[in-house]
């Protein structure tokens, strides 16, 4: 799906009202939390939803966009059902994370940051997920997979397919 098509999709903005109202004591300093909960709800941050957040909180849309585009956790485009995060931290790097990354790209046929056409997987690299003793590591959703080899990676992804 290209950018323009996504923005014309009909999105239900009712859920976002419920999220925002929890922070009515201070919208501004809770903007990041609002965006995180919104992204958990929708899987990404649709433009119409951001407009609604701006309307409800009185925070200018430009400022909201500024925050969304600054932090790597936020995405303006839909992501796959499973988020694959290959760690590229120092320890993982030294132990061959590059090979794991290459293999994932081949198996899924996507580049870093991209989603597979069937919206099953999104492939990302993360700077460090804090399990360096198991290098090289990747996370799929909230599960960790450590001491990876290129073969193991293929097996793991197949289980999710």
């Amino acid at each position: 799906m290209k950018g323009k098509t996504i923005n014309r999709l009909k999105v239900d903005i009712k859920p976002v009202k419920k999220i925002v109202v929890n922070f009515d004591n201070d919208y501004e300093s809770n903007l990041i939390a609002i965006l995180q909960q919104t992204q958990d709800e929708y899987g990404y941050l649709p433009k119409q939803v951001l407009k609604e957040i701006s309307r409800l909180t009185d925070i200018p849309l430009a400022r909201i966009f500024g925050v969304v585009t600054f932090y790597s956790q936020f995405t303006l485009i839909p992501r796959g059902k499973h988020a694959i995060k290959v760690c590229s931290g120092t320890a993982c790097h030294v132990k061959g994370a590059d090979d794991v990354k290459q293999k994932m790209k081949e198996v899924l046929n996507v580049e870093e940051g991209q989603t597979t056409p069937d919206y099953k997987f999104t492939l990302e690299t993360v700077a460090c997920i804090g399990t360096c003793f198991l290098a090289p590591v990747m996370m799929i959703d909230e599960r960790y997979f450590g001491k990876l080899t290129t073969d193991k990676t293929v097996d793991i992804v197949e289980k999710y397919s």
């Binding site: 931290g89 120092t90 320890a91 790097h93 460090c128 804090g130 399990t131 360096c132 003793f133």
Partner: peptide
């Protein structure tokens, strides 16, 4: 925030 890649003691 423990952002240093390779650090996991705070975690």
């Amino acid at each position: 925030d423990e952002g240093d890649p390779g650090a996991f003691m705070d975690r």
